[in-house]
Structure formats: C-alpha cells, structure tokens
Amino acid sequence: MSRSGYYAFLKAKKTRYEREKRDESDFKLIKNIFDKSKQKKGIRQIKLYLATEFGNTMNLKRVYRIMKKYSLYTKVRSTNPYKKMAKATQEHKL
C-alpha cells in the first residue's frame, strides 16, 4: 500500500463509521419491507415503497449494496410446467 493511500485510509475512518451506522438504520427499513412482502420484493420495488410510504429517497445502487451486504435475496418464481402442457393441448382442440 502506498503512503498516501494509507493516510487517506486513516483519514476516512470517520466517514466509514458514519456510513456503517447509516447502512444499519437503512437495513432495518429494508428488512422490514422485505419480510412484509414474504421475501418477494426486489430492489426496485423496495426503492419505490421507501419513496412512497416513508418519503425516503434512496438510490437504487444503495438499496442493492445493502441487500447484497446483508445477503437479502428475493425468491425467484418458477414457471408452472402444466400451464404449457394445457396451452399446447388447447391449440389442437379446434
């Protein structure tokens, strides 16, 4: 590590600490919304919900970073295989 990089790291200690505290408070909000939606709301929906309900404008990248940091992942909906089969059989009914 370079000398200037080391001193820049030491100088930024306070800002890193403040960012951590802000992330923890934002995480509580995001986690609350995430659990209410039964882990189905993604980054964009959480951002919109924060803006409309709480009036808290948070950047999309920030929501993404916090969700990734605390490993909050949405459940991915799988397709229904029977729906395709039902659609295929109805095409030949005519």
Rank of each mutant, 00 (worst) to 15 (best):
N56R: 15
F9L: 08
N80V: 00
R65E: 10
E91W: 05
P81Q: 11
L50C: 05
Y73E: 09
Y73A: 09
Y49R: 09
T52H: 08
I43N: 09
K38I: 14
K40R: 12
Y7S: 03
I33T: 02
M58Y: 13
H92L: 10
R62V: 06
L29I: 11
R16C: 00
Y73K: 09
N59Q: 10
F27Y: 10
A51W: 13
N56V: 13
E24I: 09
Q90G: 05
G55V: 14
R22K: 14
G42A: 02
E53L: 03
S25Y: 06
G5K: 04
K21E: 07
F54G: 02
E18P: 00
T57P: 03
T15E: 15
K41T: 07
S4R: 15
G42Y: 09
I30D: 01
K11T: 01
R16K: 11
L48E: 13
A8L: 11
R77G: 05
F54Y: 15
M58S: 00
F27P: 00
R3T: 03
A86L: 06
S25P: 00
F54S: 12
D23R: 10
Y49H: 11
M1I: 09
I46M: 06
S78N: 11
M58G: 03
L60A: 05
D26P: 01
E24Y: 07
R22W: 02
F9V: 00
M67H: 02
E24S: 11
N59F: 02
S37M: 07
M85Q: 14
K14D: 13
I43F: 03
S71W: 06
K41Y: 08
M1E: 13
F9A: 04
G42H: 06
K11R: 15
Y82W: 08
E24Q: 12
N80K: 04
A12W: 00
R16I: 01
Q90H: 07
I43D: 06
Y73S: 08
I66R: 01
I43T: 13
K40A: 12
N56F: 15
F54Q: 08
K40F: 10
F34W: 02
P81E: 08
Q39P: 00
N32V: 04
T15C: 05
A86P: 00
K75N: 09
Y17F: 13
K11E: 08
K28Q: 14
F54M: 14
N59A: 04
Q39V: 08
Y17T: 10
K13I: 00
Y70E: 03
K31P: 02
N59L: 04
M85I: 11
L72P: 03
K38T: 05
L72E: 03
Y49Q: 12
Y70D: 05
S78A: 13
E24R: 09
F9G: 01
T89S: 09
L10M: 15
N32W: 06
R65C: 02
S2M: 02
Y64P: 00
R65A: 04
R16Y: 04
R19Y: 07
E18T: 11
R22E: 15
Y7N: 02
I46H: 03
K28Y: 11
S71R: 05
H92A: 10
Y82N: 10
K13D: 07
G42N: 07
K14P: 03
S37A: 13
R44Y: 15
